[in-house]
Design a protein around this nucleic acid. Sequence first.
RNA 1: GGGCGAGUGGCGGAAUUGGUAUACGCGGCAGACUUAAAAUCUGCUUCCUUUACCGGAUUAUGGGUUCGAGUCCCAUCUCGCCCACCA
Length: 798
Amino acid sequence: MKHYDALKIEAKWQDRWEKEATFRADDKDKRPKFYLAEMFPYPSAHGLHVGHVRNFSIIDCLTRFYSQKGFNVLRPFGYDTFGLPAENYAIKTGISPQEATRQNVENFRKQAKRLGFAIDWSREINTSDPEYYRWTQWCFLKLYEKGLAYRAESYQWWCSTDQTVLANEQVEDGRCWRCGNEVTKRKMKQWYFKITEYADELLEEIDSLDWPDRIKTMQKNWIGRSEGANIRFKVDGDKYDIEVFTTRPDTLFGATFLVLAPEHELLDKIVTNDARAAVDKYRKDALKKSEIERQENRDKTGVFTGAYAINPATNSKIPIWVSDYVLSSYGLGAIMAVPAHDERDYEFASRFKLPIIRVIDPVDSPESSDDHYCYHGEGVLVNSGEYNGCSSQEARKKILNWLTASHIGHAQVTYRMRDWLISRQRYWGCPIPIAYDKQGNAHPIPVDQLPVTLPAITDYAPDQSGRSALAKAQDFVKCKLDGEAMLRETDTLDGYACSSWYLWRYLDPHNSKQAWSPKLVNQWAPLDIYCGGDHAVAHLLYVRFWCKFFADEGLLSFREPIKKLLYNGYINGPDGRKMSKSKGNVIDPLDVIDDGYGADTLRTYELFIGPYDMDASWSTEAIGGVFRFLGRFWSLCFTAEHLDGADAEHEYRRHKTIKKVTEDIQRTNFNTAVAALMEYLNYLYKNGAAKNDLVAFARLLKPFAPHLASEVLEEFSADDAWPTWDEDKLVTDVMEVIVQVNGKLRAKLTLAAEEVQNRDLLIEKARADAKVQQFIGSKELVKTIALPERRLVNFVVK
RNA sequence: GGGCGAGUGGCGGAAUUGGUAUACGCGGCAGACUUAAAAUCUGCUUCCUUUACCGGAUUAUGGGUUCGAGUCCCAUCUCGCCCACCA
């Protein structure tokens, strides 16, 4: 007895697809283009996991769907290979990151091929390939040329385990995103990309994107735009001014003290001799605290600097304090404290017995306002001289005008987002193409000398120096530029730089003259659909930033790189917990295939498991249901007798399924598309199937189970063109009508179409039903709702 | 603390503009085939009452709008995610 031998079928088709390069995309094809990609994977030593399979299967389903619909589809694949795991592995084992990466990539490629994805393998890219990172370096130089890559010294997040600085996007809850270690601040000279230059555009264009609202909100929060004012306060009896940022210039009359962040540069200059010792100690302690410690203890602490400032509105002397509740990295690192209308300032003022002056009364409840020192809403100004009686909104404008006219302040927009810190004190990354002369001035490496190749070394471990292991490679460090001896930059680029432009390299992957040809990229990009389950604010913000920059450079003709984003959920272990080796709940997708289920079952199951954007738990039982489904289709095709032709009922079912599956895939409701196919198959299984039915079924199934579908289409000598439905076939002669009494279902009638269309006849038929009669009885009929188009009648009785 | 989203059988989940709640799958029960098991096939499977029919209840809880509410509105509870000393 023959049976569904998934592995045999899959080997046959994978072999054929490989030999025929079936999925190679043609740049010259004139059909409308469709460009899709998943977020390329970091090829770990563990190989593909079920999360990758879900992610790749979503894109593969859409790739095949649009391809079958006749689009010129491009779906590439690549590897994001720079990063800490390979380097840490090298430190542990001595196996070079180059070698480990080579092995991991090979394994990933082999595994991806066993899943039968419709990938154009001729476009494979790898970010640690010198031919790739040569152009990452070129991108860096482009940004440098325009002043958007710069070097500055400041306090940055430092991970003492990984011995490197981190970008703000890589610090999660005060911990390193890689190792989970608590991070602290360290003052270092570092390279940055000026992403804040594009903050407004990045914010404004979010709304135009077909992205999940969740991700859009996260990016908006991350950018965090605030409108307000910068205001200068004179330091009493000194030459210095302290400038603060506030969103509420209307509360200026209530500013009773200033607070500086511990890192503020004027702190040293204004502190009085009496206070110096206490201030120095406070600053030292604050910098030593990790972010976790700062968050755990939110009790306000602080020290008086001994100095005073002049409130420009009241001309009164107000004390200047230092406290770590003011963040050095936001605004100007200094605030005017208005304790009557800001809870943090209120807490601080209460603790240190500082004056509190109310300057805004709520409009609706002026009597009770005495108890509400911390009223932070809008209202009417009091204790504010000439502005008394003015609404707070109005006062905001008036006071800002006065500040501007008298050169004390000006309107200011501030962002929560900071510039992107890109240097890493690690070996396994793209070298920054910069060298320094004897004076320490930075010089870009000329483009014709790229790539600056990462040298092979043997000792990868970073030390406490804050420099990468590259610093020990003397042959690498020493170089000559225009005959002048220089020392190379030994920090490497954040891996996110490598992934900020790969979506364009895919479109011109073998170009040795340019990072990409604008003609080719503008032809294929922007990406029509992108899918991933991570990097909501890091990668997905950076790639938008680079897109805008290169559009300004004339190298791209679009300003947003990704039209539609699908953010897929995770797949947890059968116990509902995150899969991890230590919990012993890891499902290896290759094991699932080799157990006999095959790739078609695995892929279909992962799309059927639930809505693609929700987390799901693996079920070792439920995958059997999908295997049975595919097995039944196989046996219906290859072992059963086929009907000579399809009757009206078969045609109705077929067209209904075509419509449902087509619309569901377009709506990315993959799970219900599979359910519709199961329902159709159950029908065919019971009632027999004609060749037409099976061919249509195979075409609809192909995006989910491409091997089996190909096998069936070959058997019936049919192509894979996406089937279309005929609305006429969905209209039936007889239909079921729902009859309700007081909104409750009481009868289902089977009536001819003409009977339903005739409203009076429909009501008559419905009312004549014995069951309906029973519920209406002798009660008074108040109203009758009859909706032929909804096939529904509702009798309302009293 | 602020913002957003969600709550449907034993389980994963369906219900596209308010119109048959529980599609599809898993699990469970019964039966067929078999010496037996596996596999496969058939039927049943929201809950209560009932041998069965009939009937009643039901989409976290309470209220509202409506001929009709899982879907809309208000309140409450629970969970999830994001932000969080951002001036």
